[in-house]
């Protein structure tokens, strides 16, 4: 599989660049509109997580890789920070009252809910979050 890549500094201000990169390729794929919308949210959540937590004392890059394989649209988001599996976070409590409601964990909940399959691996000193959405319905 051949990936297209965007490598940029992990700053929140670069979100628009990430969104454009993913959206353009999603537009040219067989992804239905609803899945594309979910994908863009999942990508934001993953990118923002890297920006906030991957490089606590320093600056680093984030790489967005996009490809398709076997009826799937794949987006991988990787960073060179300390090993961290976003998917290890617990599910948020989505039933609690407004004053008790904590927002933590909602981003990863969106990633899980809005993609068909998401996995984490540590590869060549990088955290790689791989999100897949089916393009065949």
């Amino acid at each position: 599989m051949s990936f297209e890549r965007l490598n940029i500094p992990a700053f929140i201000e670069n979100l628009d660049m990430v969104v454009s990169f993913v959206e353009e390729r999603a537009d040219n794929s067989a992804l239905e509109a609803k899945k594309k919308f979910g994908l863009l949210i999942a990508v934001e959540e993953a990118f923002v997580n890297v920006c906030h937590y991957a490089y606590p004392q320093t600056h680093g890059d984030v790489t967005i890789s996009i490809g398709t394989e076997k009826g799937q649209f794949i987006v991988e988001i990787s960073d060179s920070g300390a090993p961290f599996d976003l998917l290890s976070l617990p599910e948020p409590d989505t039933d609690s009252d407004i004053m008790e409601r904590e927002i933590g964990g909602l981003g990863v909940h969106f990633i899980r809910t809005l993609t068909d399959q998401t996995s984490y691996c540590r590869e060549n000193g990088k955290n790689v979050l791989r999100m897949a959405l089916r393009t065949d319905g």
Binding site: I41, E44, E45, V48, I98, R101, I103, L106, G107, F110
Partner: peptide, 12 residues
């Protein structure tokens, strides 16, 4: 058109 967890966090 679009809201992510960051937007929901602000509303909350």
């Amino acid at each position: 058109d679009y809201i992510s967890s960051a937007g929901l966090r602000s509303l909350l």
